[in-house]
Design a protein around this nucleic acid. Structure first.
Length: 340
DNA sequence: TAGACGTGGAG
DNA sequence: TCTCCAAGTCT
């Protein structure tokens, strides 16, 4: 008789799974929550440094709740999907205000908090509270899609529903933290997107894709779409040692982050221009469009106008704790190189 | 409900 | 250089 799926998974975890990730040490709900949000659509290797820095500054939910949004976004700068950071801040404040500083210990209540969906709620419930809960992240989807030889794109509503049902059936009542972590580890280490290591996989006996030699074809790739292209101009206004930055509206791309203002004739009119120069176009690819941005360098004589709160003169030599869009960080680094 | 929402690593 | 997409959620 074949061994129970979850037993095989847990046994594999005991021997080969990851146990040294930063958020696995002292896995309180707060620490697990922060890691799960950072890990959404983001790889472990990228997250580790951000996580360490974040925990250094915000060791508990009260500290985070009491921070300014600039402080939070500055620690998120470069990680992307900034709505995660804005929601993180909101949720911290809600947890302190409405839950006495303690995160709920069940999926239903966790899901009511901003930025926490079904899978993240399952992760917090299982990893922090050791209570049975189902997760379905990209890793688990890939493993289950192969094990069950699911021949439709995992993003389809119907397929997603099916995957949740399968995940619920397979998830055990015991050893929940080990099982859930194991499924993610299998997806990340063995059952990888390309060239899965089936020779090292404990699940080949259970795997329909392996039996049908479909492991390289499943899960099915997302249907292709051509990315829309957009063009734009940004103003790099320089005055003495400072650069004019604009706080971008949220929601929206780079919402809440400080960035060069997009071209604005009315804004320009307020300045006494000493010199200007058109720069080279740089292209930025997002998940839903490609943006070709041409910078216009403008040296101005006056600092004046009545700039509202959404504008600041930023001095790169005196870094402030504000969230900079990656494009600004990169530009500052490039400038620094040039000066040297 | 499909589109919005970032960035960087892998192949 | 280019394409794909990773520990998803929100609207």
């Amino acid at each position: 008789m074949a061994a129970l799926f979850s037993d095989v998974v847990v046994a594999w975890y005991r021997q080969f799974g990851r146990k040294d990730l930063p958020w696995q040490q002292n896995p309180t709900a707060y620490r697990v929550w922060v890691s799960e949000i950072m890990l959404q659509q983001t790889q472990v290797a990228t997250v580790i440094d951000y996580y360490q820095r974040f925990m250094q500054v915000f060791p508990d939910v009260q500290k985070l709740a009491g921070a300014t949004s600039d402080e939070v976004l500055s620690l998120w700068s470069g990680l992307g999907y900034y709505a995660r950071a804005r929601n993180l801040h909101k949720t911290a404040q809600q947890v302190v205000a409405d839950h006495g500083g303690e995160f709920p210990d069940n999926v239903a209540d966790l899901e009511t908090l901003p930025g926490i969906g079904r899978s993240t709620a399952g992760a917090i419930t299982s990893f922090a509270y050791k209570k049975p809960a189902v997760i379905l992240d990209g890793n688990v989807k890939r493993v289950l899609a192969r094990v069950h030889a699911i021949k439709s794109w995992t993003g389809e509503t119907q397929t997603l529903k099916q995957l949740w049902e399968i995940a619920e059936e397979e998830t055990p009542q015991q050893n929940i933290a080990a099982y859930n972590q194991a499924m993610m580890d299998l997806g990340a280490m063995i059952c990888t997107r390309s060239r899965p290591s089936c020779e090292a996989c404990p699940l080949t006996n259970h795997c329909q894709a392996f039996k049908q030699n479909l492991q390289n074809d499943l899960p099915l790739a997302k249907p292709k779409k051509t990315l829309p292209e957009r063009e734009g101009r940004m103003l790099v206004l320089l005055q003495d040692d400072t650069i004019l930055l604009h706080k971008r509206p949220s929601p929206g791309i780079w919402g809440g982050l400080w960035c060069f203002p997009e071209y604005d004739a009315a804004l320009l009119q307020q300045f006494n221009i000493a010199q200007q120069q058109v720069g080279e176009v740089s292209s930025h690819t997002f998940s839903h469009y490609r943006w070709h941005i041409r910078p216009e360098y403008i040296w101005v004589k006056n600092k004046l106008p009545r700039l509202n709160q959404d504008f600041i003169w930023y001095n790169p030599d005196k870094p402030n704790n504000i969230g900079l869009a990656a494009i600004v960080k990169h530009w500052l680094v490039a400038q620094h190189e040039e000066i040297k």
